[in-house]
Amino acid sequence: MDLPLRVAPGVRLRSSASGLRAVIDDATRGAGGPGALGVGARPHSAGDAKDGRGARAQQLVDLERRARAAQEAEDLHGLQSVEGTLTSLHLDNHPLRRRPDSSTSTTLPAKERAMLERKALRAAQPEVSVFKRAARAKAKAQAETEADHFVRTLDVARSVITQHRAAVVDDQWHALADHEPHTVIAELEAEFAAAESSCTCVDAGRHPDTSRAYVTVVVRYPTLDVVAERGPGASSSGRGMLRRRTPSERNALYLSAIGSFALATVKRVISVAVATDDVHLVVVRTPDAGAGLEPVYVGTLTREDVTLRPLLSDGAPLVLASAVRPTRFEGPAKDLVALDADPAVLALVARCVEALEDHELDAVLEGAAD
């Protein structure tokens, strides 16, 4: 399959604290178009990370930091916790995005209505002597009439605004449900940013031959160092201890972690981009030399692959089987290495590297200006 590995027209990449971000150019945004994000979005909160759902699954930067801290401190329980999380991200629940309910009340609440009437009455009565009861009664009736007219005008204005917002939400939702590329990319980027994810959506559309809706996502994953050389084990007496892992054990755990994250990413994508059939994944990492990025996996996972598989099964075999560019392993320990040179993959990675370098240059220029 010839994957459309590209940055979509009207989309550019920029660097952020958690990774790369796709930005929709203003020229591609229509009135009420994908510039207004968050169709049916659920805000992320600290509770998501606390209960192990939602945002937790994407915070690779935090997991990598915790893994390195546990390794340096030789923290047995810390390593168990972070490595358990790395290999179980695909178990997280990602509820399907639903069309937001825009049926809000268009009438002014009774409390606010009564407050306006009181204000109108207080404004009218001081002008009439307290000894002129008939005049005060007339002023009160007039104030109530004016307040009622004002409230009715507010009700009409609120109704118009509510209907306009509902129409905008409907347009956005239909664009998302119809898999309009810029809307899909903008919604996924809003989701990734809210989850502090190391993923970015660089393309969306439909395959010309099959009409299946697809998205292309780049995942920036840590190097093998995220898996400790010494891991949780048990002594002959059954007491917990750290033991040295073989290179094969370490590589297998690393591959399992990548598989788990890949499945978690696809589950998040299909929960937001509700019409998506296929998710093209490009996994990149910083090479040992510390410069640029190297692609280590390119594959396609379908909605059927993710939703019909046994939930508790290891994600690595499925992810490896879905590779559309041969995944490369070297040596007896099967070290995961960079893919063979492929023009389409290298072109996409080059765009990502360029965005990261632009961010570094901006930081240097800002420092010089200060």
Score class of each variant (00 low, 15 high):
residue 202 V to Y: 05
residue 24 I to S: 00
residue 304 E to A: 14
residue 325 R to P: 00
residue 9 P to A: 14
residue 335 D to A: 11
residue 181 P to T: 00
residue 160 V to A: 12
residue 151 V to K: 02
residue 200 T to R: 07
residue 80 Q to E: 13
residue 196 E to K: 04
residue 52 G to Q: 07
residue 339 L to V: 03
residue 233 G to Q: 02
residue 40 G to L: 09
residue 251 N to R: 10
residue 21 R to W: 04
residue 195 A to I: 02
residue 172 Q to W: 01
residue 338 A to Y: 07
residue 353 V to I: 09
residue 185 I to Q: 06
residue 243 R to V: 13
residue 269 V to A: 08
residue 202 V to E: 03
residue 115 M to H: 09
residue 123 A to C: 05
residue 23 V to P: 01
residue 314 D to F: 06
residue 353 V to A: 06
residue 178 D to V: 04
residue 173 W to V: 10
residue 124 A to R: 14
residue 228 A to D: 00
residue 37 L to I: 15
residue 364 V to E: 15
residue 342 D to C: 12
residue 48 D to Y: 12
residue 285 R to I: 05
residue 339 L to H: 08
residue 294 E to T: 09
residue 63 L to P: 00
residue 123 A to S: 11
residue 221 Y to W: 10
residue 168 V to N: 02
residue 182 H to M: 12
residue 250 R to D: 00
residue 81 S to G: 11
residue 100 P to R: 02
residue 315 G to Y: 08
residue 244 R to K: 01
residue 224 L to T: 03
residue 253 L to F: 07
residue 50 K to F: 15
residue 203 D to S: 14
residue 178 D to K: 14
residue 149 H to I: 08
residue 310 P to V: 10
residue 128 V to P: 00
residue 212 R to E: 09
residue 155 D to N: 15
residue 122 R to N: 10
residue 11 V to C: 09
residue 97 R to D: 03
residue 357 E to N: 11
residue 161 I to R: 14
residue 65 R to V: 03
residue 5 L to R: 01
residue 345 V to T: 15
residue 124 A to H: 12
residue 234 A to L: 15
